[in-house]
Design a protein around this nucleic acid. Sequence first.
DNA 1: CAGAGTCTTCAGAGATTTCTGAAGACTCTG
DNA 2: CAGAGTCTTCAGAAATCTCTGAAGACTCTG
Lengths: 154, 154
Amino acid sequence: MADTIDVAERLALTLEQGGLQKATARVMAAFLFCDADSVTASELVEQLGISSGSVSGAIKMLSTVGLIERVPAPGSRREHYRLREGAWATLMSTQNGMVQAMFEAADQGIKAAGADSPAARRLAEMRDFYGFMFRELPALVERWRTERDASAGP
Amino acid sequence: MADTIDVAERLALTLEQGGLQKATARVMAAFLFCDADSVTASELVEQLGISSGSVSGAIKMLSTVGLIERVPAPGSRREHYRLREGAWATLMSTQNGMVQAMFEAADQGIKAAGADSPAARRLAEMRDFYGFMFRELPALVERWRTERDASAGP
DNA sequence: CAGAGTCTTCAGAGATTTCTGAAGACTCTG
DNA sequence: CAGAGTCTTCAGAAATCTCTGAAGACTCTG
Protein backbone atom coordinates (compact mmCIF):
# COMPACT_ATOMS: atom_id res chain seq x y z
CA MET A 1 0.00 0.00 0.00
CA ALA A 2 1.21 3.47 -0.85
CA ASP A 3 2.68 5.59 1.89
CA THR A 4 1.10 8.95 2.63
CA ILE A 5 4.23 10.86 1.69
CA ASP A 6 4.36 9.07 -1.64
CA VAL A 7 0.77 9.90 -2.40
CA ALA A 8 1.34 13.51 -1.46
CA GLU A 9 4.37 13.72 -3.73
CA ARG A 10 2.41 12.19 -6.54
CA LEU A 11 -0.34 14.72 -6.07
CA ALA A 12 2.33 17.42 -6.15
CA LEU A 13 3.47 16.05 -9.47
CA THR A 14 -0.05 16.35 -10.83
CA LEU A 15 -0.25 19.93 -9.64
CA GLU A 16 3.06 20.56 -11.38
CA GLN A 17 1.56 19.30 -14.62
CA GLY A 18 -1.16 21.83 -14.03
CA GLY A 19 1.37 24.64 -14.16
CA LEU A 20 2.58 25.14 -10.61
CA GLN A 21 6.28 25.20 -10.01
CA LYS A 22 7.80 22.29 -8.16
CA ALA A 23 8.27 23.90 -4.77
CA THR A 24 4.82 25.49 -4.87
CA ALA A 25 3.19 22.22 -5.82
CA ARG A 26 4.83 20.41 -2.94
CA VAL A 27 3.80 23.11 -0.50
CA MET A 28 0.23 22.87 -1.76
CA ALA A 29 0.26 19.11 -1.31
CA ALA A 30 1.53 19.59 2.23
CA PHE A 31 -1.42 21.85 2.96
CA LEU A 32 -3.76 19.15 1.76
CA PHE A 33 -2.15 16.30 3.65
CA CYS A 34 -1.10 17.88 6.92
CA ASP A 35 -2.74 16.50 10.03
CA ALA A 36 -2.98 19.76 11.90
CA ASP A 37 -5.47 22.49 11.06
CA SER A 38 -2.78 24.94 10.08
CA VAL A 39 0.88 25.00 9.08
CA THR A 40 3.77 27.39 9.54
CA ALA A 41 6.48 28.29 7.07
CA SER A 42 9.24 26.73 9.13
CA GLU A 43 7.34 23.45 9.34
CA LEU A 44 7.19 23.40 5.58
CA VAL A 45 10.91 24.18 5.30
CA GLU A 46 11.67 21.25 7.54
CA GLN A 47 9.16 18.74 6.14
CA LEU A 48 9.93 19.37 2.50
CA GLY A 49 13.63 20.12 2.75
CA ILE A 50 13.46 23.31 0.71
CA SER A 51 14.72 26.79 1.42
CA SER A 52 12.82 29.41 3.35
CA GLY A 53 12.86 31.58 0.27
CA SER A 54 11.04 28.97 -1.75
CA VAL A 55 8.44 28.52 0.94
CA SER A 56 7.94 32.24 1.21
CA GLY A 57 7.42 32.49 -2.54
CA ALA A 58 5.06 29.53 -2.60
CA ILE A 59 2.94 30.91 0.23
CA LYS A 60 2.76 34.27 -1.45
CA MET A 61 1.65 32.72 -4.73
CA LEU A 62 -0.91 30.38 -3.18
CA SER A 63 -2.34 33.24 -1.14
CA THR A 64 -2.62 35.45 -4.20
CA VAL A 65 -4.71 32.95 -6.13
CA GLY A 66 -6.85 32.31 -3.08
CA LEU A 67 -5.93 28.71 -2.34
CA ILE A 68 -4.64 29.29 1.18
CA GLU A 69 -5.19 31.91 3.86
CA ARG A 70 -3.50 33.21 6.96
CA VAL A 71 -4.95 31.91 10.16
CA PRO A 72 -5.15 34.29 13.09
CA ALA A 73 -2.48 32.75 15.30
CA PRO A 74 -3.14 33.23 18.98
CA GLY A 75 0.04 33.64 20.94
CA SER A 76 2.47 32.42 18.31
CA ARG A 77 5.26 34.31 16.71
CA ARG A 78 4.96 32.32 13.54
CA GLU A 79 2.38 32.90 10.87
CA HIS A 80 -0.07 30.06 10.43
CA TYR A 81 -1.69 29.19 7.12
CA ARG A 82 -4.29 26.71 5.94
CA LEU A 83 -6.19 25.67 2.86
CA ARG A 84 -9.15 27.91 2.21
CA GLU A 85 -12.69 26.70 2.27
CA GLY A 86 -13.87 26.41 -1.33
CA ALA A 87 -10.34 26.73 -2.66
CA TRP A 88 -10.98 24.60 -5.71
CA ALA A 89 -13.96 26.56 -6.84
CA THR A 90 -11.88 29.70 -6.48
CA LEU A 91 -9.11 28.17 -8.54
CA MET A 92 -11.47 27.30 -11.36
CA SER A 93 -12.82 30.83 -11.34
CA THR A 94 -9.28 32.13 -11.63
CA GLN A 95 -8.66 29.93 -14.60
CA ASN A 96 -11.69 31.51 -16.18
CA GLY A 97 -9.47 34.54 -16.67
CA MET A 98 -7.53 32.48 -19.16
CA VAL A 99 -10.74 31.71 -21.00
CA GLN A 100 -11.52 35.40 -21.14
CA ALA A 101 -8.06 36.15 -22.50
CA MET A 102 -8.59 33.65 -25.29
CA PHE A 103 -11.94 35.21 -26.09
CA GLU A 104 -10.44 38.67 -26.29
CA ALA A 105 -7.50 37.54 -28.38
CA ALA A 106 -9.88 35.99 -30.89
CA ASP A 107 -12.08 39.06 -30.89
CA GLN A 108 -9.19 41.37 -31.71
CA GLY A 109 -8.08 38.97 -34.39
CA ILE A 110 -11.41 39.23 -36.12
CA LYS A 111 -11.17 42.98 -36.15
CA ALA A 112 -7.70 42.82 -37.67
CA ALA A 113 -8.44 40.18 -40.29
CA GLY A 114 -10.52 40.92 -43.35
CA ALA A 115 -14.22 40.68 -42.61
CA ASP A 116 -15.03 37.73 -44.79
CA SER A 117 -11.70 35.94 -44.84
CA PRO A 118 -11.11 32.33 -43.84
CA ALA A 119 -9.11 33.69 -40.91
CA ALA A 120 -12.10 35.65 -39.67
CA ARG A 121 -14.28 32.56 -39.85
CA ARG A 122 -11.80 30.49 -37.87
CA LEU A 123 -11.36 33.20 -35.31
CA ALA A 124 -15.13 33.57 -34.98
CA GLU A 125 -15.44 29.92 -34.01
CA MET A 126 -12.74 30.42 -31.41
CA ARG A 127 -14.36 33.55 -30.07
CA ASP A 128 -17.79 31.97 -29.87
CA PHE A 129 -16.48 28.92 -28.08
CA TYR A 130 -14.59 30.83 -25.44
CA GLY A 131 -17.41 33.31 -25.11
CA PHE A 132 -19.74 30.44 -24.35
CA MET A 133 -17.34 28.97 -21.80
CA PHE A 134 -16.77 32.31 -20.19
CA ARG A 135 -20.49 32.69 -19.67
CA GLU A 136 -21.18 29.14 -18.55
CA LEU A 137 -18.26 28.20 -16.32
CA PRO A 138 -19.18 30.50 -13.44
CA ALA A 139 -22.70 29.07 -13.52
CA LEU A 140 -21.26 25.57 -13.35
CA VAL A 141 -19.13 26.45 -10.34
CA GLU A 142 -22.16 28.02 -8.73
CA ARG A 143 -24.13 24.85 -9.28
CA TRP A 144 -21.39 22.90 -7.57
CA ARG A 145 -21.66 25.12 -4.53
CA THR A 146 -25.41 24.74 -4.45
CA GLU A 147 -25.44 20.97 -4.76
CA ARG A 148 -22.74 20.67 -2.18
CA ASP A 149 -24.53 22.84 0.33
CA ALA A 150 -27.72 20.93 -0.33
CA SER A 151 -26.20 17.56 0.49
CA ALA A 152 -24.31 18.87 3.52
CA GLY A 153 -27.09 21.07 4.86
CA PRO A 154 -30.27 19.60 6.47
CA MET B 1 -5.16 50.21 -35.60
CA ALA B 2 -3.26 47.05 -34.81
CA ASP B 3 -1.56 45.19 -37.61
CA THR B 4 -2.58 41.58 -38.26
CA ILE B 5 0.88 40.25 -37.48
CA ASP B 6 0.86 42.06 -34.15
CA VAL B 7 -2.50 40.65 -33.24
CA ALA B 8 -1.37 37.16 -34.20
CA GLU B 9 1.74 37.51 -32.09
CA ARG B 10 -0.32 38.71 -29.18
CA LEU B 11 -2.61 35.74 -29.52
CA ALA B 12 0.47 33.53 -29.56
CA LEU B 13 1.52 35.11 -26.30
CA THR B 14 -1.83 34.24 -24.78
CA LEU B 15 -1.48 30.65 -25.94
CA GLU B 16 1.95 30.62 -24.36
CA GLN B 17 0.43 31.66 -21.05
CA GLY B 18 -1.86 28.70 -21.51
CA GLY B 19 1.11 26.36 -21.48
CA LEU B 20 2.19 26.01 -25.09
CA GLN B 21 5.82 26.55 -25.87
CA LYS B 22 6.76 29.64 -27.80
CA ALA B 23 7.32 28.08 -31.21
CA THR B 24 4.19 25.96 -30.94
CA ALA B 25 2.10 28.94 -29.91
CA ARG B 26 3.28 30.97 -32.89
CA VAL B 27 2.59 28.09 -35.25
CA MET B 28 -0.90 27.76 -33.83
CA ALA B 29 -1.52 31.48 -34.29
CA ALA B 30 -0.35 31.17 -37.88
CA PHE B 31 -2.93 28.44 -38.47
CA LEU B 32 -5.62 30.73 -37.15
CA PHE B 33 -4.60 33.79 -39.12
CA CYS B 34 -3.44 32.37 -42.44
CA ASP B 35 -5.45 33.43 -45.47
CA ALA B 36 -5.23 30.14 -47.31
CA ASP B 37 -7.19 27.06 -46.37
CA SER B 38 -4.09 25.09 -45.50
CA VAL B 39 -0.44 25.65 -44.69
CA THR B 40 2.79 23.76 -45.29
CA ALA B 41 5.71 23.34 -42.94
CA SER B 42 8.06 25.32 -45.15
CA GLU B 43 5.66 28.24 -45.27
CA LEU B 44 5.69 28.30 -41.50
CA VAL B 45 9.49 28.14 -41.40
CA GLU B 46 9.65 31.13 -43.69
CA GLN B 47 6.85 33.20 -42.18
CA LEU B 48 7.87 32.76 -38.57
CA GLY B 49 11.63 32.61 -39.02
CA ILE B 50 12.08 29.46 -36.96
CA SER B 51 13.85 26.22 -37.72
CA SER B 52 12.31 23.30 -39.54
CA GLY B 53 12.84 21.17 -36.46
CA SER B 54 10.74 23.50 -34.35
CA VAL B 55 7.98 23.51 -36.92
CA SER B 56 8.06 19.74 -37.14
CA GLY B 57 7.78 19.45 -33.37
CA ALA B 58 4.97 22.00 -33.20
CA ILE B 59 2.98 20.25 -35.90
CA LYS B 60 3.41 16.93 -34.21
CA MET B 61 2.23 18.31 -30.89
CA LEU B 62 -0.75 20.19 -32.30
CA SER B 63 -1.78 17.13 -34.26
CA THR B 64 -1.55 14.93 -31.18
CA VAL B 65 -3.94 17.08 -29.16
CA GLY B 66 -6.29 17.32 -32.11
CA LEU B 67 -6.01 21.01 -32.92
CA ILE B 68 -4.81 20.59 -36.51
CA GLU B 69 -5.02 17.88 -39.14
CA ARG B 70 -3.31 16.84 -42.31
CA VAL B 71 -5.09 17.85 -45.46
CA PRO B 72 -5.04 15.44 -48.36
CA ALA B 73 -2.77 17.38 -50.70
CA PRO B 74 -3.51 16.74 -54.33
CA GLY B 75 -0.41 16.86 -56.46
CA SER B 76 1.89 18.53 -53.97
CA ARG B 77 5.05 17.14 -52.50
CA ARG B 78 4.58 19.08 -49.31
CA GLU B 79 2.26 18.09 -46.51
CA HIS B 80 -0.60 20.48 -45.97
CA TYR B 81 -2.18 21.11 -42.57
CA ARG B 82 -5.10 23.11 -41.29
CA LEU B 83 -7.01 23.90 -38.13
CA ARG B 84 -9.51 21.19 -37.33
CA GLU B 85 -13.21 21.80 -37.23
CA GLY B 86 -14.25 21.95 -33.58
CA ALA B 87 -10.67 22.20 -32.43
CA TRP B 88 -11.49 24.20 -29.33
CA ALA B 89 -14.07 21.78 -28.08
CA THR B 90 -11.52 19.02 -28.56
CA LEU B 91 -8.94 20.98 -26.62
CA MET B 92 -11.27 21.45 -23.69
CA SER B 93 -12.03 17.74 -23.67
CA THR B 94 -8.32 17.04 -23.57
CA GLN B 95 -7.92 19.32 -20.60
CA ASN B 96 -10.57 17.30 -18.90
CA GLY B 97 -7.86 14.67 -18.52
CA MET B 98 -6.19 17.06 -16.12
CA VAL B 99 -9.39 17.28 -14.13
CA GLN B 100 -9.54 13.52 -13.97
CA ALA B 101 -5.94 13.37 -12.77
CA MET B 102 -6.75 15.76 -9.95
CA PHE B 103 -9.75 13.65 -9.01
CA GLU B 104 -7.69 10.50 -8.89
CA ALA B 105 -4.88 12.12 -6.94
CA ALA B 106 -7.36 13.24 -4.31
CA ASP B 107 -9.01 9.85 -4.22
CA GLN B 108 -5.74 8.07 -3.58
CA GLY B 109 -4.92 10.63 -0.93
CA ILE B 110 -8.09 9.79 0.96
CA LYS B 111 -7.22 6.13 0.96
CA ALA B 112 -3.75 6.88 2.29
CA ALA B 113 -4.79 9.36 4.97
CA GLY B 114 -6.59 8.27 8.13
CA ALA B 115 -10.30 7.91 7.56
CA ASP B 116 -11.49 10.68 9.80
CA SER B 117 -8.50 13.00 9.72
CA PRO B 118 -8.58 16.66 8.72
CA ALA B 119 -6.53 15.65 5.69
CA ALA B 120 -9.21 13.21 4.57
CA ARG B 121 -11.86 15.89 4.86
CA ARG B 122 -9.85 18.36 2.79
CA LEU B 123 -9.10 15.75 0.18
CA ALA B 124 -12.75 14.76 0.02
CA GLU B 125 -13.72 18.30 -0.89
CA MET B 126 -11.09 18.26 -3.61
CA ARG B 127 -12.25 14.89 -4.91
CA ASP B 128 -15.89 15.89 -4.94
CA PHE B 129 -15.19 19.11 -6.77
CA TYR B 130 -13.12 17.54 -9.51
CA GLY B 131 -15.51 14.62 -9.71
CA PHE B 132 -18.31 17.07 -10.36
CA MET B 133 -16.31 18.90 -13.00
CA PHE B 134 -15.27 15.69 -14.65
CA ARG B 135 -18.90 14.71 -14.99
CA GLU B 136 -20.21 18.10 -16.06
CA LEU B 137 -17.58 19.50 -18.42
CA PRO B 138 -18.25 17.06 -21.27
CA ALA B 139 -21.94 17.91 -21.02
CA LEU B 140 -21.11 21.58 -21.25
CA VAL B 141 -19.00 21.06 -24.35
CA GLU B 142 -21.81 19.00 -25.83
CA ARG B 143 -24.24 21.81 -25.16
CA TRP B 144 -21.92 24.18 -26.99
CA ARG B 145 -21.96 21.92 -30.03
CA THR B 146 -25.73 21.67 -29.95
CA GLU B 147 -26.35 25.38 -29.62
CA ARG B 148 -23.84 26.11 -32.33
CA ASP B 149 -25.39 23.69 -34.77
CA ALA B 150 -28.82 25.06 -33.97
CA SER B 151 -27.89 28.62 -34.82
CA ALA B 152 -25.93 27.65 -37.92
CA GLY B 153 -28.42 25.06 -39.17
CA PRO B 154 -31.83 26.04 -40.58
C1' DC C 1 15.33 2.40 -58.95
C1' DA C 2 18.18 6.62 -58.87
C1' DG C 3 17.64 11.24 -57.53
C1' DA C 4 15.48 15.33 -55.83
C1' DG C 5 12.77 17.21 -52.45
C1' DT C 6 10.62 17.11 -47.94
C1' DC C 7 10.13 15.68 -43.21
C1' DT C 8 11.77 13.95 -38.68
C1' DT C 9 15.08 13.16 -35.20
C1' DC C 10 18.49 14.34 -31.89
C1' DA C 11 22.73 16.13 -29.68
C1' DG C 12 24.29 20.20 -28.09
C1' DA C 13 23.95 25.45 -27.63
C1' DG C 14 21.33 28.86 -25.67
C1' DA C 15 17.66 30.90 -23.07
C1' DT C 16 14.67 30.74 -19.33
C1' DT C 17 12.96 29.42 -15.05
C1' DT C 18 13.49 28.05 -10.42
C1' DC C 19 15.86 27.46 -6.17
C1' DT C 20 18.99 28.76 -2.70
C1' DG C 21 21.10 31.25 1.03
C1' DA C 22 22.36 35.22 3.12
C1' DA C 23 21.23 40.00 4.16
C1' DG C 24 18.10 42.95 5.90
C1' DA C 25 13.23 44.32 7.13
C1' DC C 26 9.70 43.62 10.16
C1' DT C 27 7.34 42.45 14.54
C1' DC C 28 6.56 41.13 18.79
C1' DT C 29 8.38 40.68 23.90
C1' DG C 30 10.36 41.92 28.13
C1' DC D 1 13.47 50.48 22.82
C1' DA D 2 16.91 46.73 22.56
C1' DG D 3 16.97 42.06 21.22
C1' DA D 4 15.43 37.68 19.58
C1' DG D 5 12.87 35.43 16.34
C1' DT D 6 10.52 35.24 11.92
C1' DC D 7 9.60 36.59 7.24
C1' DT D 8 10.75 38.58 2.69
C1' DT D 9 13.76 39.90 -0.91
C1' DC D 10 17.13 39.30 -4.38
C1' DA D 11 21.50 38.21 -6.79
C1' DG D 12 23.60 34.42 -8.47
C1' DA D 13 23.92 29.16 -8.94
C1' DA D 14 21.71 25.29 -10.63
C1' DA D 15 18.48 22.88 -13.17
C1' DT D 16 15.32 22.68 -16.83
C1' DC D 17 13.30 23.54 -21.03
C1' DT D 18 13.43 24.99 -25.90
C1' DC D 19 15.44 25.82 -30.23
C1' DT D 20 18.60 25.01 -33.78
C1' DG D 21 20.92 22.82 -37.57
C1' DA D 22 22.66 19.06 -39.68
C1' DA D 23 22.25 14.14 -40.63
C1' DG D 24 19.58 10.71 -42.20
C1' DA D 25 14.94 8.61 -43.21
C1' DC D 26 11.21 8.74 -46.07
C1' DT D 27 8.49 9.49 -50.33
C1' DC D 28 7.32 10.61 -54.55
C1' DT D 29 8.76 11.33 -59.73
C1' DG D 30 10.76 10.45 -64.01
